[in-house]
Amino acid sequence: MATVKDFRNKVKPNWCPGCGDFSIQAAIQRAAANVGLEPHDLALITGIGCSGRISGYINAYGFHGVHGRVLPLAQGVKMANRDLTVIASGGDGDGFAIGMGHTIHSIRRNINMTYIIMDNQIYGLTKGQTSPRSEAGFKTKSTPDGSIEASLNAMETALTAGATFVAQSFSSDLKELTSLIEQGINHDGFSIINVFSPCVTFNKVNTYDWFKENLTKLETVEDYDYTDRKKAMQTLMEHNGLVTGLIYQDDSKPSYQDQIPGYKSTPLSESELKLEKETFERLANEFM
């Protein structure tokens, strides 16, 4: 059985020292080992950003696509080979700006895969512009007088879109994060996990200390019930979205792939491509 070591490929990440993304890398490696994956069973599909580079830093099949399109790419992989464990990941700009449409529709579609957003509330790779996750008033290179757009309530949006698994974590909390990724992988459907991952270089507001002060763990919220959608929504609103833990899970909904008429239970990639002659003739006859 593979251990966490087997998921390390010895490539030195080009992230800034102290970047929150390092812990997300570690958490994915641990979670993959903990759920019993072999490196070749895992496909890590990523977007473009500092975050997206993670596909090259974990020993697994990695595909680093184009900006904002990680989810369609990852869903295509899963549709082709349902035996692969597919994790998609990318930045907050990737998933909530350019790729927002795909995020909502992937949630609705509910294909069995896990989506991890490495949320630093800023554009890291392009050197510090505002993101849909930046707070109103946030000053960046692109908003020198402070952002005048409202910040996106990501987890509320996910709930509204019909997500069957919604979680949020903080990159410093390796234990919670690892456990949530494991739960996400094991969830039969689309799991969205937003991870606060401080950008130490460009975001001087939402720092490690800031998060420590402002985040509330859901396990400390009295009577919190992650199967209660209304309660989940209410709690998110009360805490301005700054909670961590499993926010919501609905086990009862079948995943997309389990509902497709005729869809193979074995990987589609293992199909015999050539038709039988009789089969072809039957298809051709439909046009006569």
Partner: peptide, 9 residues
């Protein structure tokens, strides 16, 4: 992009 993912796999 989905078609690319599927071809890749």
């Amino acid at each position: 992009n989905m078609a690319i993912g599927s071809n890749y796999a």
